[in-house]
Design a protein around this nucleic acid. Structure first.
Lengths: 340, 340
DNA sequence: TTTGAATCCGAAATCGTTTTCGTTTTTAAT
DNA sequence: ATTAAAAACGAAAACGATTTCGGATTCAAA
């Protein structure tokens, strides 16, 4: 019932631990014959190296950390999917932690990962995060880092993002091209960069197309979810604004608004056209199916890990690594919540 | 730039590594004074123990593994959420792997986790899994194991489940109570236990209430997703069956069916009442909002980790642990896809 | 036969902590 | 002053793998 170790194999074969280790790692100073013997014995005993010892010796864990605001979220779980798939290909495991959109928790999670000595960290910031010294600590610990989606411009590291501003611009322009004249915007909280960028894209699109930007038509959805969308839509109606278009920061907020409009006898897209953001997979199942902007989560996850791996490799080989910033393409997906 | 170790602290203070280690772990055979000194120095140098060494010495990693069919799935991401939250409370990290509903991959993932020497494993089986010797291997490795949701009756270990059969019975009975006479069922693949159980519950409910069970009204949704639901609904219509009720194995399949019915001018719930399963969070956003059975993912995750922890504790202390099987409550949630 | 180079093997140090088991010192009791 | 007990500390052996470096053996060339 005892663990099988190199020593065990060595004793069985009457050779040294050194040779056994080398044989298994295919060193060239071990004869073909002993290699064969060792391998056979290892297989017979069902030997697996003790990772704890390997970690200690090699100073790496073949494990990377991932910090995201929330797991239960279609976009983020897509990212997770992309990361796990890519990591697996190269023998890495992924430890996932959530910040629950709290800066304090995020700070703790970073410490936790560093104390676990993961080989690298990938993260998307919490909405509330302002100070980034805990992120700087990652760099100080010389741990490879990649940020994605919600990033910080204050930190120099590889990043994978979409051009939120341009994507929002195009979404808004899409509504304008469909003939909308008064377009409301449900934005996110004031702080997160993507909330800001999408808002700016919306504003710019209006201005570029001769529509006046009216700050009263901009509502804040703090948690950008379904309920927030409902609340904002109700407020919009209560405020008595006449609009013919809505660009919501997320598909969930858009869906919330959609239900409120329907409840109030407002026809979508006839009376109000709606476009969301993220191409959340059920956007097509609601009625009318939601037009939206495709945000490639899977691809983002994959790319994030790829960049991280490059940096980890460079660190191991002692070569220098220059941070890469990758911007992924987005595109408007036309469905039924906007007029044909 | 060098790592701070116990040795480092010991040298700075002119004492032995042993004493430093003991001081930090609050052994009683170290004087108050030296403890204070050591702690001060440790803080000053920002010492953090090398987990790799600790792991090797203590033979535990404070890390647990989780294998699920898919991350991008509301129910499973809820489970993940519950597990991560609970694990975090006790200083455990969670490594997540997906089987992608493939038995072969599942087998690999198990090996991977065992080779990483995680302290415990939680898993929900892939739909296609028939042989369970890879699961038995976990027990053989003396690694604590908890199965949840999709479990195997062949393995003796702690389990967290819902009573699928009863829940399905109640869902079907709910439709019957609403006056449905011919109720179709969209079931999952033939193998998974929960697919079987839900089917049996459906059948039993019909029989108990004087309705004849008609196997022609049972359709298989292999992947139990939106598209499968659509396909099954189309087939149902093509087959020319007149039904007034549908119990679908998942909310997604139910939603798929719903859209097909609407496209064909069939009114829900007037012509056909629909009930789904899972209380997937967007069930309420579609129109009509979907009646369903609530499946408590978060609670399931929490409970799974709690049981795992008990077993890990017992193992550490050398005491025996008896597997626990916990059945969580479900309940029918009435919305608008069933008549009032 | 000697030298040189291959070829193969192993002793031992190392990674950083934990823990057992002594040894030394101090304190209290006689 | 002597002894017993208690308190404080450390040497050293783990944990299991990796890797450096030197030693041994073989074989071929001079």
């Amino acid at each position: 019932m005892k663990e099988v170790t190199l020593k065990q194999i060595a004793e069985n074969l009457g050779i040294s631990v050194t040779t056994v280790s080398k044989a298994l790692k295919d060193y060239k100073d071990v004869s073909k014959e002993t290699k064969a013997l060792v391998r056979a014995e290892a297989k017979a005993l069902n030997y697996t190296p003790n990772v704890f010892a390997v970690n200690l010796r090699t100073k790496e864990s073949k494990t990377v950390g991932l910090i995201i605001p929330e797991v239960v979220h279609h976009f983020f779980s897509s990212v997770i999917n992309g990361i796990i798939n890519e990591a697996e290909k190269h023998g890495y495991l992924v430890i996932i932690l959530q910040s629950n959109e709290s800066e304090e928790l995020e700070r703790k999670q970073v410490e936790l990962l560093l104390s676990k000595r993961v080989d690298g960290i990938m993260m998307s910031l919490a909405n509330t995060t302002v100070s980034v010294d805990h992120i700087a600590a990652i760099k100080k610990a010389n741990t490879p880092l990649v940020m994605f989606d919600k990033i910080s411009k204050l930190i120099s590291c590889s990043k994978v993002v979409i051009n939120d501003r341009q994507a929002a611009y195009e979404a808004t322009k899409f509504l304008i091209d469909k003939g909308c004249k008064r377009i409301a915007h449900f934005r996110g909280a004031l702080l997160p960069q993507n909330s800001i960028d999408r808002f700016l894209g919306y504003k710019k699109a209006l201005e570029d197309h001769g529509l006046t930007f009216d700050p009263k038509l901009v509502y804040i959805c703090e948690k950008v979810d379904y309920d927030d969308g409902r609340a904002a839509a109700k407020q919009l109606l209560a405020d008595g604004h006449k609009i013919d278009g809505l660009f919501a920061i997320t598909d969930m907020a858009a869906t919330g608004a959609l239900t409120v409009f329907k409840e109030n006898g407002i026809q979508v897209p006839k009376d109000i056209a709606i476009i969301g953001f993220s191409n959340w997979f059920l956007s097509q199942a609601i009625t009318p199916a939601l037009s939206t902007v495709d945000q490639p989560g899977l691809k983002m996850g994959r790319k994030a890990f790829k960049l991280l791996r490059k940096e980890m490799k460079a660190k191991k080989q002692g070569t220098t690594f220059l941070p890469v910033i990758k911007t992924l393409e987005t595109k408007v997906i036309e469905r039924d919540s906007t007029p044909k």
